[in-house]
Computed example of a mutant assay.
Amino acid sequence: MPELTTFAPGVVAAMRAELPAVAEQTVAAIVVEVPGYTEAFRGDMGRAIENAVQLALGGFLELATATSVADPSRPIGPALEGAYALGRGEARSGRSMDALLAAYRVGARVAWRHMSATAVAAGMPVDSLARFAELVFAYIDQLSASSVAGHADQLATSGRFRRRHLERLAELLLTGSPAYDLVAAAERADWTPPRTLTAVLLPEVRARGALGQLDARTLQSGEDLPGAEPAAERAVLLVPDAEGFARATLLRALQGREAVVGPPRPWQEARASYSRALRALQLGLRPDGDAPVDTEQRLADLVLRADGEALADLRAQVLAPLDGLGAGPREKLVETLRSWLLLHGRRERIAAELFVHPQTVRYRMGQLRELFGSRLDDPQCVLELTLALAAREP
């Protein structure tokens, strides 16, 4: 703000008398020149804005009549507070600052034109007009800066509140809260529910990069995940509508991010998707190269590994006939038996999978029949062997 110089009381009194007229003309000019405010300034809102303009102009006149520079902000404190509140109101209404700053520019021009004419008519020396203009526009700059600060503060505050509401919604989804709690939380967060949600577990350090490629409605929770290890440092994303073709897009976006992807579930049942992904992680399912773990393609592994101790006991029990063999011969016969079970005894395909001659397959199967006897023809034994050998030992 320029150095304060008081104006003659008669000049100030004349300008003060013109404040209502200047405020009315200012609002009328803003309505015409700033289209974004055409509707906002009609009726009661228009009268409220006129009052705000009068407050701002009155603050300026208080500044012009100040006799001390000890605290130059004191005379215009209410005007600055009003400008700050106006900026916050614009942010709450979803407006940018463009229209308001344009209104300030129009208002400054109109107020300067009318108030300077009044001041000269009241006896202000012409050589003081430059000083007057400098004071007017410096004052408008202060009001503009105060509104910008209010706008920014409101955005920051509302952004923090919404983030907290979204985090709370993610927490409720992951803990399986009742439907009415979920609906209420979604409304508080201004979040439109999708058809389904798909849980994605990945290291926290990779979550930010993944979010940039996913649906903007994706929810994130990275703290105190239900059932997760406390030191796991993993985040969970809840991705909307990632079923069908959209799932392939999701899997591509997660390439190289060490992610585990649950199944799509109705959005209020997102906990089921999260539980599946978490279980896959706990059971030691790992990505194949850069590809994420797609639990929809690993269902057999999930079933077979659901009780690791029981699987180990079953494997030991059904493979007991091989206990007398050395490690090398035992491994070869186990591989042959697995292929024989999974390929339904087709010798040529078994040989191709094991990279051996079909005669070698025939010889090994002869050994296995000697060791297992008629059990290889028993459906129950075949089922148990298939379960035991379908998943390779971790």
Rank of each mutant, 00 (worst) to 15 (best):
G262M: 03
L337M: 13
E243M: 03
A23F: 11
G10D: 14
K332W: 04
Y180V: 15
R265V: 04
L383W: 11
S273H: 07
E353T: 07
E187D: 15
L371W: 04
V34W: 05
L278T: 08
R298H: 14
E18S: 13
Q297L: 15
D127N: 12
G345H: 07
D290R: 14
F41N: 06
L101S: 06
P203E: 05
D378Q: 04
P193Y: 04
L182H: 06
D224A: 14
V303W: 03
Y274I: 02
E353W: 01
A117L: 11
A145D: 10
A133C: 12
Q297H: 09
P264E: 02
G222F: 03
S128Q: 15
G212L: 09
S158I: 02
V136T: 12
P203T: 09
A291N: 07
P287R: 06
E62D: 15
Y363L: 08
D290Y: 09
R16E: 13
L354A: 06
A210C: 05
A138H: 14
R364F: 02
P394G: 10
G326Y: 02
H151M: 07
H357C: 08
E370W: 07
A246W: 04
G89S: 14
T175Q: 11
T118Q: 12
R92I: 06
G366A: 13
P292K: 03
A351D: 10
P9T: 04
L325I: 12
Q268A: 08
T26Q: 04
E353A: 13
A248N: 09
R105E: 15
Y363G: 05
V31K: 08
L376R: 11
V27T: 09
E39C: 02
W112A: 15
L254E: 11
L304T: 03
L387S: 07
A145T: 03
S128E: 12
Q142I: 00
V106Q: 11
A8M: 01
V361C: 08
A170F: 05
L129R: 11
A14S: 10
Q213K: 15
V236M: 02
L80R: 07
G244H: 13
S147A: 15
Q317I: 00
E24P: 00
I49S: 05
A388L: 00
R105L: 12
A64W: 00
P287A: 05
R392N: 09
D127F: 13
E258H: 12
A52E: 10
A52I: 04
S96K: 06
A280W: 01
G373A: 14
